[in-house]
Amino acid sequence: MIGNYPTGRQKGALIPMLLYAQDEIGQITEELIDEVSKRLSVNRVEIEEVLGYYTMLHREKRGKHHVQICTNVSCMLRGGEELWEHACGKLGIGNKQTTADGSVSLEEVECIGACSWAPAILVNYDFHFNVTPESLDALIEGLRTKQ
C-alpha cells in the first residue's frame, strides 16, 4: 500500500491503513496506533488528528454487525427517521451503542450515497435499499442468528 504513494510521502497511506486494519481487528487500538506510527514514520499526534476527524475510524469496539441508518434528506423523505426510531426501539439501544450480546451496534449516519434507493442502510459495508421497518426487522433477526 505504501508503494502507491510518492517516496517520502508514505503518510498518504495513513487513512487507508487505519481503516483496513480496523476492519480486521474491529477497532483502533493503542497497539495499532503504535504500529502504524512506526510503519509510516508519522508522529502519534498526526494519527490522533485523523482519528478524531474521520467518522468511520473508531476506538471503541462495535457490534459484529454495525447497522448504519441514514436519516439525511433523501432518506428522511422516505421514512429514514422512522426507520431509525424503529431500530432503536427494536434493539433497545441508541446511537453508537451496541447490544448486550455484542452482535449489533447502531449508528445514525449522514448521507451514504444511496439516495435514489432510500431509505438505505449499511450493515458493515453491505448496502440495503428501500428498507422498511418490516424488512429491517427481518434483517436484524437474520444478523443476530447469523452470529
Binding site: 508522529n43 502519534r44 499526534v45 498526526e46 490522533e48 488528528e49 478524531g52
Partner: peptide, 20 residues
C-alpha cells in the same frame, strides 16, 4: 517539536497533545 495537533471536528474540534 510538533507536539500539538487538531482533533475531532466542527464545534467538537480541539487541540490534542502528542501522546493521546
Amino acid at each position: 517539536v510538533g507536539a500539538l495537533g487538531l482533533t475531532h471536528r466542527g464545534v467538537h474540534a480541539e487541540i490534542t497533545p502528542s501522546n493521546g
